[in-house]
Amino acid sequence: MKKNYVTIKDIAAAAGVSINTVSRALNDKPDINIKTKRKVLEIAKEMGYVKNVTASSLRNRKTKTIGVIFEDSSNPFFAEVLKGIEKGSREKNYNIILMNTEKKYDLERKAIKLLLEKRVDGLIITPTQEKSEDIKELIKINIPFVVVGVNFENIDIDEIYSDDYYGGYLAGKYLIENGRKKFIMLNGFSYKSVAKERYLGFKKALDEYNIKDFTVYELEEGLENAYLKIKELIEKNIFFDGLFCYNDIFAFGAIKALYENNIKIPDKVNVVGFDDIAFANVLNLTTIRINKEKLGYDAFHRLYKKIKGDKNRIKEKLGVELIIRNT
């Protein structure tokens, strides 16, 4: 059933004043009698008036809304990034429309199209990086946007991401200094800058110690995929004692497989994750910490400046740190 919203015309008729007077009262203008203003506001409240933001945005050509596109909003990593975006948006009285692409490029393109049709003022996006055409199209149509969490090296756009290379290096160095000899890395797909940089940093640490005995497996993201890969390696009697995981979700799946096969952690195998999501502390996981809330907060404020007309392009790289626990 269609809802019949109360209009300012309805309020004006009930209050016995002009539409212009109602408008001034609802918008808190100073040039209105206090008694009249109170009367109008009381009647508006009694009638259940809801401001028509859409009409206002059409007049101002601003919706005070941004679109946020994540590749997997069920991942706790993105929940913490979103917390930072929300904190920034509240400071500037902006609203958020969140879309999830499930790491699929076609869904990413559809999400961008839908949000642009909603006339959002700008976008914060974590792209799949499988292809870059959609990012190039955003540049072409001149919509303010900020990429968060990944880095397009050859495209001049605003980005905020973590130092994945150094994080991979810290993970490798930690495993080596713990006396580990044979290494496995469970990585994401290398077309993503995150996976590529974490691998290169990890490899640099191994190269410094002249270690050549390591294997990298690229997997579709998800706890179950990491679990199945480690289970497979154990069943094939493939030995390893140092395990670096692309993210904490991979690490959780790997640990599950190791525990099920009575392989003690950290006695027999050291495991290092990446991201330091909330559950990492609960499971006592050694991991690389990213300041995820700052990632989101800085992304929003960068976007806000672009919406306000800032033409500069900024690539901001946030530091990471090794958090040693008991894996």
Rank of each mutant, 00 (worst) to 15 (best):
K196W: 02
D248R: 11
I157G: 03
E208M: 12
R198Y: 01
K229Q: 12
P127L: 00
L116A: 07
G188D: 01
D213A: 13
G222N: 08
T215A: 11
L114Q: 14
N151D: 14
N237V: 09
S190H: 13
D158L: 02
F239V: 11
F145K: 04
V148F: 14
G172E: 05
E218G: 03
K231W: 11
Y246W: 09
A171S: 14
I234E: 06
N210W: 02
G149Y: 10
Y199S: 11
K229N: 09
K182E: 14
E159Y: 07
D248T: 01
N187P: 07
G179A: 12
Y169W: 14
F244V: 07
D164L: 02
L116Q: 08
T215P: 04
E232R: 13
E153G: 01
K192S: 15
V147M: 06
Y174T: 08
E224K: 14
I249G: 04
E159G: 00
R180D: 07
K203T: 04
Y246P: 11
P127K: 03
Y174C: 11
N178C: 14
G172A: 08
V150S: 15
L116R: 08
K212E: 14
K229R: 15
F244H: 08
I112T: 05
I124T: 01
V216T: 10
E197L: 15
K131P: 00
S162H: 13
G201V: 05
I234H: 10
E117Q: 15
I143C: 10
P127R: 02
F214L: 11
K173Y: 08
K131I: 00
F214C: 11
G201K: 08
I160Q: 08
D163F: 03
G168E: 05
M185P: 04
N154D: 15
F239H: 14
G167N: 06
E177S: 13
F152K: 02
N142T: 06
L186D: 00
Y209P: 02
T215V: 14
K182R: 15
D248Q: 12
K173I: 06
K118D: 12
V147Y: 05
E235M: 14
I124A: 05
S132L: 11
Y191W: 10
Y166C: 09
N187K: 06
A226Y: 00
K131Y: 05
E133Q: 03
L170S: 09
A251L: 09
D156K: 14
G172S: 11
L138E: 01
G242Y: 02
N187H: 07
N178Y: 00
E235I: 08
E130K: 14
L228G: 00
D241Y: 04
G122Q: 07
K181W: 09
Y191L: 05
Y227D: 10
P144E: 03
